[in-house]
Structures are given as structure tokens and as C-alpha cells.
Nucleic acid binder design. Structure first.
Lengths: 225, 225
DNA sequence: TATATAATGACACAGGATTGTCACATTTTT
DNA sequence: AAAAATGTGACAATCCTGTGTCATTATATA
């Protein structure tokens, strides 16, 4: 939390400085970028715990930067949107952003959301064993269990399962799944996801039903609390 | 969004008419003023959702009008500026201008910004869970619920429901609905909307009555607060 | 290194769900 | 009553997903 490093991408200097001041008051380190290009350069250079990203940016806009970051990281991203390009339809499909803050916003609110996300992701990383019903995954062991019986999953199946477990109850498009499991630079058939879902479902036995098909979109790992 | 009223202050008649045409295509009402004095008079008379304001105006210039409006309202203001000077913009941000469009501009861009600002003010799109009475939609899950029971909606039905929920109490023409759900480039029978409304109503059970027919126009999702 | 085994990605096909359209019924307006 | 607009059921075309299979690639084993 304190001691985290944030990449702050915002072209308006005064706003950037203001946010920086507030963040530093929370003992959070801030690296600033004034445009999309700079943001991506800084992104490659160092590791960050969270990104605050303005949508309207010179060079590359926020969506582009976001997409690029999402190609190899699940780091929390907060978008500062003044204009919402997404229409009704598109919005639900954009699953990469963790939170939105709409301009004009109170900096206090933004900071609150930053803290919430940092806490959450910190928490996520700590978790070494994920358990859902009879299903258990020990990340350190790199092994899944069903009824405490080791499950014989292939690497892709394991990765796929983890993506589902990390995004419980979230509808994921095939694109997103392909990105997360195969990597951003993978160029292949979307339907391949289907095949792997089929195989994973089979191995998960009755738990396979938790992987719900979201028709016209993709899949969702459903857990009933 | 649709149904909003905009005060358009621009002295050049042709440009004004052009902007008006585009805005009305979006179901936005337009009130025109040709100079600063008229603008302020109209401002006092009625309520608006947004103001488009040319900087160079007869009688009072745009800054004066802007200042005056800001004395009693936080309504979104878009300035049309001829110069794109940095200091001009900074000056404007002090006055509380929400967005700038620099002449010459494409009307489409202006419209996009208008829509963005209107959306921002009722930033419904950002909300991930929409709840109306017994009806609930979780956008991340991509799932609707009625009495907390999952609703089995087809993709089109889901999209249609979202459009209604994002435009509560707004009469929407079939054209608009077709645009939002099927995409602007879709070429098909307007009556198709009717069929899908029928199907959605049925699945929404008693809540189906909330989708009110606006004879001669289209439909409206009605909520009584 | 050669061989066997497993994993992977692509694809085609089947079956079912979804969709758009139309004709006709019903309602509302003139 | 006629005209106009909307509601509705039926149905064929289309879309989408599940699945089996196969060639290729990667990995493990001898």
C-alpha cells in the first residue's frame, strides 16, 4: 500500500501535479507521463503497482495504452474519462479496466479508489491457494485438486482455469481469454478457446458446469455464494 | 441523452443550422442564439442540459456569457474557439469550461463531444450494476436478474434491455433503438424492434409493463421513482 | 539420438438457439 | 367505419457452440 509505485498518465500538468501531491501524502511513489508514448516507454522500463490513465491523451490515447498494458499485465488500471467513447454495446465488452473515474472528479475520491485497488490486488497476490467448492488450486505447487485428488491438467488447461478463477463471475470474451492464456502476441483461431474449455470442463467433472457459456460473448466461471 | 436540450450560441447562421441538423438527428433539442445578449436572455428563460458557446460573438463575447452562466450553474459548456492557444484554454478552464473545439472542426467531432458530456452528466454507463425495482443487470457478469433469479436473455434481448436501462423514461424511436442495439450500419426492418420488445416484455414478466409503447414514436422504459 | 507419448491448434460438422421477417390479429386514431 | 400503428405467432435462415478428429509440435523416455 504505502511504498507502492503508480504510473500516472495525464497530459494536463496542473491536474497531474495535484494528484501527485495527494498520492505522495499517502506514501505512494508516483511516476508521471504526459502522453501515451511516454507512458508506454515508462511502462517498459519499470514495474508498477497501478496505472492511472487519462483517456484523452496526445500521441496515443488512453484506450490504446490500456490495451497495450493489458497485453502483458493484469495490473490495476483506473481510467479517467471525460468523454465516454463506448456506447451501450461496447462498454460491457471492455473488461480490462478495473475502475473508472469520470471528470471532473474529486481527487479525494480518486485516491480512495486507488487505495481500494491497491489493497485488493495486494490481497490477490498473497493468495496462494484458491478454493471454490470442491475445486482447489495451489499456485505454489502449480497443481489443481478436485475433492483433494490431484487433477491432471495440461499447462494450457491450468492457465485457463486460473484465468477463470481470477475472474469469477466475470464474463470473458474469447479475445480476452486468448490474451490472458496465450499472450497478446498470439495470433490464432478464437475457437481454439472453445476446444480448451471443452477439455477443461471434462476434467473438472461436475464442476465443469461452473464454466458457463455466455452466448454471443464468451465464457464465465460462475460461483454461487 | 436523447431528449436533452442544448443552447447553441453561434453567430454564423450557416454553421448554426448545420450543427442543429446534426444534433436533431440525435434526438437532441436545440435552442439557438445568435449573440451573447440573446444567449443570456434565453438562458434565464429555460433549463438546458448543455451549452455550446462560440468565443467570438456580437454584443457579449463567449467568455462573458460563460462567466455569467457559471454564476449559477455547473451545466456542461463547450467552447468553440478560433485560436487554439494554450493560454486561452487555461483561461477557460478557470472559468469552468468543460471542453473545447477549435475551429475549423468537424461537426461530427463536436457532436461526439456533446454526447460524451451529456453522458458524463448521467454517467450511467460507468455503473456496473443497474437496478430497477426487482430487475437487476450486472454488466460484468453480463447477466440480468429478476427477483435475483437469473434471466435467460438472448444477446439481442440483453442489449435491448441495457439500452432501455441506460435511457430510463426516455422515449426512443425505433431508429435509435436499431442504431444502439444493431449498430448504425444495420439495414433492416424497423418492425424487428417490435418483435424483440415483445420477446423482452414476455421474459420480464410483470416488469414487461415498464416498456411502454409510445404510439407514433417508439418505446420508453418507464420507471416511477 | 531415436522413439513414444502428450499437448496443441485448427477445422469441419451437427444440433440447437437465435434472429429477422412476414402475415394476420388487435388496438388506437381519425 | 376506415386507416394507421402496434402486438403476436410461426417459420425458415442464420448464427453459435459443442465436439470429434487429425496433423503438427513439444516433451518425455529409452
Amino acid at each position: 500500500m504505502a511504498g507502492s509505485t503508480i504510473l500516472l498518465v495525464e497530459d494536463e500538468k496542473n491536474l497531474r501535479k495535484l494528484i501527485r501531491t495527494y498520492l505522495e501524502r499517502e506514501m505512494i511513489n508516483v511516476v508521471e507521463a504526459a502522453d501515451g508514448k511516454e507512458a508506454l516507454e515508462l511502462w517498459e522500463e519499470e514495474k508498477y503497482d497501478l496505472v492511472i490513465l487519462d483517456v484523452m491523451l496526445p500521441e496515443y490515447d488512453g484506450w490504446t495504452v490500456c490495451k497495450r498494458i493489458r497485453q502483458n499485465s493484469h495490473i490495476p488500471i483506473i481510467m479517467l474519462t471525460a468523454r465516454s467513447e463506448e456506447d451501450d454495446k461496447l462498454f460491457g465488452f471492455d473488461l480490462g479496466v478495473d475502475d473508472y473515474v469520470t471528470k471532473p472528479f474529486s481527487v479525494k475520491e480518486l485516491i480512495a479508489r486507488v487505495k481500494a485497488l491497491l489493497k485488493r490486488s495486494n490481497h490477490q497476490l498473497m493468495i496462494e491457494v484458491i478454493e471454490v467448492g470442491e475445486l482447489k488450486v495451489d499456485k505454489k505447487m502449480h497443481q489443481a485438486f478436485l475433492h483433494d485428488e490431484p487433477l491432471d491438467l495440461t499447462p494450457k488447461e491450468y492457465d485457463l482455469l486460473l484465468v477463470f478463477l481470477h475472474n469469477q463471475n466475470q464474463a470473458l470474451t474469447r479475445e480476452i481469454i486468448l490474451d490472458r492464456v496465450w499472450g497478446y502476441d498470439y495470433y490464432g483461431d478464437l475457437r481454439t478457446v472453445d476446444t480448451h474449455v471443452k477439455r477443461l470442463r471434462k476434467k473438472l467433472k461436475h464442476m465443469g458446469k461452473q464454466i458457463v457459456t455466455v452466448r454471443g460473448l464468451g465464457y464465465r466461471f460462475e460461483v454461487t455464494n
